[in-house]
Amino acid sequence: MYTLTDVSKTYRQGARTVEALSDVHLSIADGEFIAVQGQTGGGKSTLLQLLGALDKPSRGTVLLGDEDLGRLGSTELGDVRARRIGFVFQSFNLIPTLTAQENVETALAPLGVPATTRRERARAALESVGLGDRTGHLPSELSGGQQQRVAIARALVKEPDVLLADEPTGALDEDTRGEIIGLLEGVWRDRGLTLIVVTHDSWVAHRAERRVHLKQGRITGKAATRV
C-alpha cells in the first residue's frame, strides 16, 4: 500500500527550520492495521499528513501503490484524497450546518456521484455505523460518539483503500472509546482496507497489528507486532 523511502519533512518557523520527520523508511502492506505512537511533536501528525496526501515530503518519496504523492500537483492530490483515502479526526470535523446524512454526502460530492445514489449510499453508510435513525440530525444534536460515527461513515462511504484516523478516541470517554475502536476494527476486518491510527492511547495502540513509534521525527526501535 505505502512505501516511504528516506522521507524528511521540514518547516520554516520564522528564521528557524524545524525538521518534523527525518529519514523515515516505512512500508505498509495492503489491509494492514497500524498504530502510530509517539510524544507530542514527535512527527505523528506530519506522517499522517504525508500518508493522507495532504502535504508533500521535503525529501524522499511517498508511494501510495504506484503513485508518488510527492510528484503530484494539488489537483491530483485532491483527486487521490477523494478516491482512495478516508479521514477520521479527533474533533470529528463535521460541518456544523449540515445534517448527519449531508455530512456523509460531502465525501461523495467530489466524485460526481448523482444525487439519488449519493443519498442512498450516505444513508447506507450511516446505517452501517448504527446511525440509521439519526440521518436528519445536526452534529450539535448528536453525542461525541455519534459524531465520530458520522465521521467514520463519511470516511467509509466512498469505499477508500485506506482509512487514516488521527486520535479517533481522543475526545471520547472510555466506554465510547471502546465502541469506536470496535467499530474501526470491524470495518478493517470486514472491508479489508488499510487502517492507520495515530494515538497516544496505548490501549488503542495495542489493538493494532503493528505499532510504529516516532521520536523527534524518527522511527525508533523495531516496529512492534501484535501476536
Binding site: 495532504l54 485532491g78 483527486d79 479526526f89 470535523n93 460541518i95 467530489p110 463519511r154 470516511a155
Partner: peptide, 8 residues
C-alpha cells in the same frame, strides 16, 4: 476538512 476529503 473539505479539502482533506477531496474537495477541489
Amino acid at each position: 476538512t473539505l479539502k482533506a476529503i477531496g474537495w477541489s
